[in-house]
């Protein structure tokens, strides 16, 4: 194990974290502002990936595909919000769980019907397909660096949007007192649709970006959804800052765990069982992290508005 390998894994962890942040930002906003548990968030990730793969396949341009993923996911989000989600805000969390679970079945079933069960492929764009040399130390995928950059840019953009703009002010106000802001004449229904579509677009973007690294298929959002929930719970539900910290923790702990634990166990165990025990423990690492954080801080690291 060399320092270069370690650096490479750190960058991989950072890239994973940024993808998780893109997923979690929308989830935490929707929960924080509307009080809605949205299991269908993973579906929007899938929608983004499919839109990108199809448009990129038709036009030959990854960038048009990326744009399409944002538009398609935002539209799907807005549609779902107006058609279904809007009726659920005043309902029990359990009703929301069942309804959004039903949406997963509908979207996954519909996508399988339209595009079949075979995965689609999405290529990394030409300009980002060659590795770049970092500090004269290692060659690293420029596409993964691009994902990291997008994640940081989105985090800064969201911070600016929420802290500095009128829309952000309304979102924050909606979070703390929904009746009051409605009484002040803000169209809360449109605001909610907007927030939902924004979260959906970010999930779609994450799906499109990751689609080029994995295959684009039905059900690709399921495991990411669970991880995104882990992230927002660790960070504290409703807090964008919490989601960012949570994403960094989960991304780095998961990647570094998978990399380092087998080495650590190899110091005390025979290589065969070290690999299997290390592998198992690293899959569990983020859940242990979440359980410990919740035992110590039952409302996550950054409790938003109490």
């Amino acid at each position: 194990m060399t320092a270069i390998l370690l650096l490479e894994q750190l960058l991989n962890g950072l890239q994973f974290a940024m993808m998780l942040f893109l997923m979690s930002a929308g989830l935490t906003l929707v929960f924080g502002v509307m009080g809605l548990i949205n299991l269908a968030h993973g579906v929007l990730y899938m929608v983004g990936a499919f839109a990108c793969a199809i448009i990129a396949g038709l036009t030959g341009s990854f960038w048009l595909g990326l744009l399409a993923s944002l538009v398609a996911a935002a539209m799907a989000g807005a549609l779902v919000e107006v058609g279904v989600i809007r009726k659920l805000y005043r309902r029990d969390h359990l009703d929301q769980v069942l309804a959004t679970y039903a949406l997963i079945l509908i979207f996954s079933g519909g996508t399988r019907w339209l595009f079949g069960a075979f995965p689609l492929y999405l290529d990394v764009p030409q300009i980002l397909s060659t590795p770049v040399n970092l500090f004269g130390l290692l060659d690293y995928s420029s596409y993964r660096l691009f994902i990291i950059a997008v994640g940081i840019a989105v985090a800064l953009g969201l911070y600016f949007l929420i802290a500095r703009t009128r829309l952000g002010m309304r979102i924050r106000a909606g979070k703390s007192d929904r009746e009051m802001i409605a009484a002040l004449g803000v169209d809360i229904r449109t605001l909610y649709t907007l927030v939902f579509a924004l979260g959906a677009a970010l999930a779609g973007l994450a799906g499109a970006l990751l689609g080029a690294l994995q295959s684009v298929e039905v059900g690709m959002g399921d495991s990411v959804l669970i991880l995104a929930f882990v992230v927002i719970v660790i960070g504290g539900i409703g807090s964008i800052k919490g989601a960012f910290i949570g994403a960094l923790l989960v991304g780095l702990v998961d990647t570094m765990g998978r990399f380092l634990l087998p080495y650590l166990f190899a110091l005390v165990l025979p290589p065969d069982s070290a690999a299997s025990i290390g592998g198992a423990l690293s899959s569990v690492a983020i859940y242990i992290l979440m359980a410990v954080i919740l035992i110590v801080k039952p409302k996550g690291l950054i409790a938003a508005n109490g």
Partner: peptide, 27 residues
């Protein structure tokens, strides 16, 4: 441990424990 939390946090911490057992069974 889980009953120290409430609501969505309870949902997620019970999930976390179940996932630990799941990965243990796989390994």
């Amino acid at each position: 441990f889980s009953l120290r939390t409430k609501g969505v946090y309870f949902i997620m911490i019970t999930l976390a424990f179940a996932q630990m057992i799941y990965y243990f069974a796989i390994a």
